[in-house]
Amino acid sequence: MRSDVQKGASGPGSVDIPRETLLAHTLVELADSLVADFDVIDLLTLLADRCVDVVDVAAAGLMLASPDGELRVLASSSEAMRVLELFELQADEGPCVDCYRSGEPIVNLKLADHDTRWPRFSPRAIEGGFRSVHALPMRLRGQTIGALNMFRIDEGPMREPDVVAAQALADVATIAILQHRAVRDAQILNEQLTRALNTRIAIEQAKGVVAERANLDMEHAFARLRRHARNHNLRLTDIAQAISSKAMPVSALDP
């Protein structure tokens, strides 16, 4: 297992706390974060991180469909390029896109067995050290808006309680993206999806600025943006916008 897909050593998963307790803690933490004007990307990144802690997986990512039905990565537990690429690849093929199209969970698929199903995705995922993949739908009243994607290093099946816990997290993600508001119609839903996806692009641009100025890799550049936002109780999106537009110098970010 490589270091960039390891669970955070200081996270709650590193001590032997029962999963139910972890899940309860996580749901409380997420509920606390669902305050007015919260940052959707920050919350979903937290959710992906917690997914790795609560459920026995190495990496987790949330993919959201654009109004055109194309899947894009919105948040992931690891910013390692290798992992992001695996998520991105699934815009074309892979468990996430299959789950999104069918609206059904895809669990416990061993990668080696499915090279014909996903000829491009499977070899790359195996190369990345993963052996099994799982995807759960993000659903809103019968409509699937995206999927929660999880990678595991071993081939063993996900236990049923883990699947239930992960689906609960996927459901929270759906609520977060829709920002409490009752989605009255398809138009508002599409606008919110578009907005969330564009926000993620803005964050990638800001990561690039920070990576260059502070000589960091993308993972650490993102961590720095997030840390500053949290320390100062600011929205990650606003920090990203300020950095990208050079309204705020990178040197003003907390180290």
């Binding site: 990565v73 990638e204 641009q205 990561k207 690039g208 600025v209 990576a211 260059e212 993308m218 990208s244």
Partner: peptide
């Protein structure tokens, strides 16, 4: 996303 990360780097 790599295109956007690169755009950020080039802008700096």
């Amino acid at each position: 996303y790599v295109v956007h990360q690169a755009a950020g780097m080039v802008s700096a």
